[in-house]
Nucleic acid binder design. Structure first.
Lengths: 111, 111
DNA sequence: GACTTGCGAAACCGTTTGGTTGCATGTATA
DNA sequence: TATACATGCAACCAAACGGTTTCGCAAGTC
């Protein structure tokens, strides 16, 4: 039940949905038409994406339009930043980088 | 069996391991000491990380040192890039962005 | 050679995941 | 009002996941 953005993007179908609704809101039916699964399966994915606030919905009549909560994607970017420092060789603040990694490792350990 | 980098980073313990070996190679025992699981469980995680080439190993005597394959982390960055364009409002090449998202969506559909 | 250490592999187990089918509800439309 | 449509939700199921225990093997150490 612990909804995590990293878990949310782990599934290829969900990444497909994210790509699909990144620029335009779509209804579950419209989304399901792009994949070879049932509408209900898509609905489940949308629920997971909604639970971790990666997706927002807007009801219009009997239709529900889903769209990407782009700000949430930054969370991945934040996590990636420390490693970007490494592959870019930016070790100016090696101390803080080490502290960041240590803190994160400790945080993960608690889960 | 489908080893995917996104699935690899989905697990919090694996993210902890990644943070831990990002700057220094460590043995399974040393890694396991940082988490409250068995060495064997860590070993399983290391196998998954190795399978998707996120981690490389070097045998020294009877010890095996695992370290992060930092280049592989760029793959996540590449995937994130299209969304970064969106949240940064960089729509200069809206056409190519749309094409990128379409292509990716199609790619995910096949899986 | 006998013993300890570091490790991976296999077997097993409870839980989660991703999918399906069937159903209930609310909204438009004839 | 009766009908069709768009959707979420519950129940169920096989497969995958994350963990443990047990084992076997290679490499050091006495």
């Amino acid at each position: 039940m612990r909804r995590d953005i990293f878990q949310a993007i782990a599934d290829p179908t969900r990444r497909g949905i994210i790509a699909l609704i990144a620029l335009q809101a779509l209804t579950p039916n419209a989304i399901a038409a792009h994949f070879d699964t049932t509408r209900q399966a898509v609905s489940k994915h949308l629920r997971i994406l909604t639970e971790c606030e990666l997706v927002k919905q807007e009801s219009i009549g009997r239709e529900i339009y889903y769209s990407l909560e782009i700000e949430k994607m930054r969370e991945i970017d934040v996590w990636l930043e420390q490693y970007r420092k490494i592959w870019e060789g930016r070790f100016e603040q090696l101390d803080t980088l080490l502290a960041d990694l240590k803190r994160q490792e400790k945080q993960e350990r608690k889960k």
